[in-house]
Amino acid sequence: MSILDPAGPAARDIAALWWVMLTGSVLILALVTVLTALSFRKRAQVPDEARLERTWILGMGLGFSMAVLAALLAYGIATGARLTAPVADAVEVTAEASLEGWTFGYPGDAARGQTADVLHIPAGQDVVVSITTRDVIHSFWVPRLAGKIDAIPGHVNTLTIRADLPGTYQGVSAEYSGPGYLDRRFEVRALDPADWQAFLSGEMP
């Protein structure tokens, strides 16, 4: 369930973003702490007010903060744009949330029926999940694969996920939905190409 143990490109990008931001934050916190502590030291002369204003307000308050924030914002928007960019040749699946559980639908439904609480996807391929809900608001979240997106009545949201390797990934509904919230979970099973074909043709349950 850890977002720091990514198993797909979207989650990996976000984990990298986290480590960058954590490093920067620790440095800034250390800077502010040291500056605050230094104000307690004994000083011979009282500094000149205009100069203090330039240093602290223009330099630190405006200059420093805007430079850091602008860089971070650019990085964040670029990452976000990459993660929401339309993908070619994606497998399209649907996810419908409800208080009773999740229902997943697949391309070529004729052969392949819907599945409950287990989403099957091909490993190593982009999968676009179209997400909605039958009742209250839920959220589709598989922490090791990607961020979350809400399932909102009357709206369809999409999320691109991709698992690098075959395996099972835990997912949860991540918007409080009343009694039973704890157990509103599902699984994502990433299959290798042969298993995926077998799954689509209905040979695999």
């Binding site: 989650a11 916190l29 990452t79 961020g147």
Partner: peptide, 24 residues
């Protein structure tokens, strides 16, 4: 000390992709 940490994590969650992970 406390508010600066809160402000820094606040900037983190203002960065959209990170918020997708930690929201809720």
């Amino acid at each position: 000390f406390t508010f600066v940490i809160g402000g820094l994590t606040g900037v983190m969650v203002a960065i959209v992709p990170f918020d997708w992970q930690v929201h809720d």
